[in-house]
Design a protein around this nucleic acid. Structure first.
Length: 459
RNA sequence: GCUGAUAUAGUGUAGGGGUCAAUCAUGCAGGACUCUCACUCCUGCGACUGGGGUUCAAAUCCCCAUAUCAGCACCA
């Protein structure tokens, strides 16, 4: 099996599907799992992407057994190219692109097609020596001009590219993916290839090469296209968004990249479970965040300690009670995980939304009931008893609160925007921690400080 | 335009001639539990794209239509 990303940017959910699906087959049936970096187009290689891809794969925890770079293997591609030419299966085409396209659509041969293997070989060697300029020539495979699918007719194998130097290899002639992929799939002993439906035509093209070379073809599986609601998965579109300042970076919370998910506290195992559930169906699907969130919650709920986070905090003076200390469980129902101690002495923060909801009788969670009095722009609170049952029977909202003296500023980063708030200092004890802000949702503590920054995951 | 693939609840899946008045998860609604709108538990809601055909019997096989997606790049 293999996972073969193009190093043009960080990996996203679409990559994760291919990566985990292949990984799962390895887990179940054994075999080698080759990470193949497909960097045969210098125009599409982002030098930083090599590292990003490596990091993302580490995050996913794939059981990769070996890693290869196609840019190290150009000579192998040239060798196969020569062999195909020798066998009369390929020729060097000097036609104008538009002209060829037109001929192809009419099932007509271009003049170059009648080359002898010797002529073609001569031209190919000249190509390698740099005798031709970029765009002037290409090597094409002789397939079948009568093929009903125009996409199959004499497709290209190599091109000349000099305008963009490659990061890792000094080359004039570049293999195109159908050649390099077919060669590597064979040379690396691939028995099964699982990839997206968008490669279905490429599979058929590559099968020509396998046939001409007398190689056994792998078993191919093509899964359907996947879209994600409200997210662009296209690397180039994401890059454009970052450049224009619309996104803060590759890990912007609104992006479908793995690093964006990681930052929000989405666990790799959750992504794995979600994409494995989707499977290798050929149906095009619209991936919904809900399903991923459910998988993630399954994993993080039991380990995430609970804390108060007060969004859009409003300071309220509460009278009628002596200072007391509230004890709140770190995890409901599990005393062994201990308690947070939250002191009350008059002045507290309450969620702005709660005050404007119109409720007049509330319970401060783990403390006591209060009655609210709206006096102009100000809100005043008054102690209204300790009875939890009373609050329940009156269907009073049980809300989170924080004392003025024990409230750390915290920005909660959401896809919809930032929410300013305050939270318990203890929640900010360590970076990377995943907590649940009661009545708000799960979040990952991203940056300590004043204000601290937390990334919102989901409810 | 040509070529090909696909079509089951809002979303994702199972089911490949009878046991399907269709599985599971998620979602939503209600309830139980609970000092969170979390977790857990219970109940409910919600789907075979349309039309023909084959057959005693079709979600399942065939044809047509429709829709969606992909390819027809000197990208992967």
């Amino acid at each position: 099996m293999r996972f073969a990303p193009n190093p043009s940017g960080p990996l996203h959910l679409g990559h994760a599907r291919a990566a985990f699906l292949n990984d799962e087959y390895i887990r179940r049936y054994g075999g080698r799992y080759i990470l193949r970096i497909e960097d045969t187009d210098p125009k599409r290689v982002d030098p930083e992407a090599y590292d990003m891809v490596r990091e993302d794969i580490e995050w996913m925890g794939l059981s990769i057994t070996e890693t290869i770079f196609q840019s190290d293997r150009f000579s192998k591609y040239y060798d196969v190219g020569r062999e195909l030419i020798q066998k009369g299966h390929a020729y060097v085409c000097r036609c104008d692109n538009e002209v060829f396209k037109d001929l192809k659509m009419h099932k007509a041969a271009c003049p170059c097609r009648s080359q002898s293997p010797e002529e073609a070989m001569e031209l190919f060697e000249q190509m390698l020596e740099g005798a031709f300029a970029e765009g002037e020539v290409g090597v094409r495979l002789r397939t079948d001009l009568d093929h009903p699918d125009p996409a199959m007719r004499d497709y290209p194998l190599f091109r000349v590219l000099t305008s963009t130097p490659h990061q890792r290899v000094d080359a004039i002639v570049y293999p195109l993916m159908n050649l390099s992929v077919a060669v590597d799939d064979h040379l690396l002993g691939m028995t099964h290839v699982i990839r997206g439906k968008d490669h279905i035509a490429n599979t058929r093209r590559q099968e020509y090469i396998f046939r001409y070379m007398g190689w056994d073809t792998p078993v191919y599986r093509h899964y359907g296209r996947m879209g994600i609601e409200g997210v662009v998965l296209s690397t180039s579109q994401m890059r454009a968004g970052i450049r224009s300042g619309e996104y803060s970076g590759w890990d912007d919370v609104r992006l479908g990249t793995l690093r964006a998910m990681a930052r929000r506290g989405i666990q790799p195992q959750a992504v794995r479970n979600a994409v494995l559930e989707i499977g290798i169906g050929e149906t095009d699907i619209q991936f919904s965040w809900e399903n991923l969130y459910a998988k993630n919650k399954e994993i993080i709920d039991s380990t995430a300690d609970r804390f108060f986070f007060v969004p859009d905090p409003v300071k309220v003076r509460v009278t009628g009670s002596e200072p007391v200390v509230a004890k709140a469980m770190r995890y409901p129902g599990d005393e062994s995980r201990g308690y947070r101690e939250i002191p009350f002495h008059g002045s507290i923060f309450l969620p702005g939304a709660e005050l404007s909801s119109g409720a007049e009788f509330l319970r401060l969670k783990d403390l006591f009931n209060i009655r609210l009095y709206h006096e102009g722009d100000c809100v005043r609170g008054e102690y209204a008893g300790d009875d939890l049952q009373e609050a329940r029977s009156k269907k009073a909202p049980i809300i989170q609160w924080l004392p003025e003296t024990l409230a750390s500023a915290c920005i909660l980063k959401c896809a919809e925007g930032d929410i300013n708030g305050v939270c318990e200092p203890e929640a900010l004890a360590e970076k990377d921690r995943i907590v649940q802000f009661e009545r708000v949702g799960f979040a990952r503590i991203d940056t300590l400080g004043d204000p601290a920054v937390a990334y919102y995951a989901h409810r």
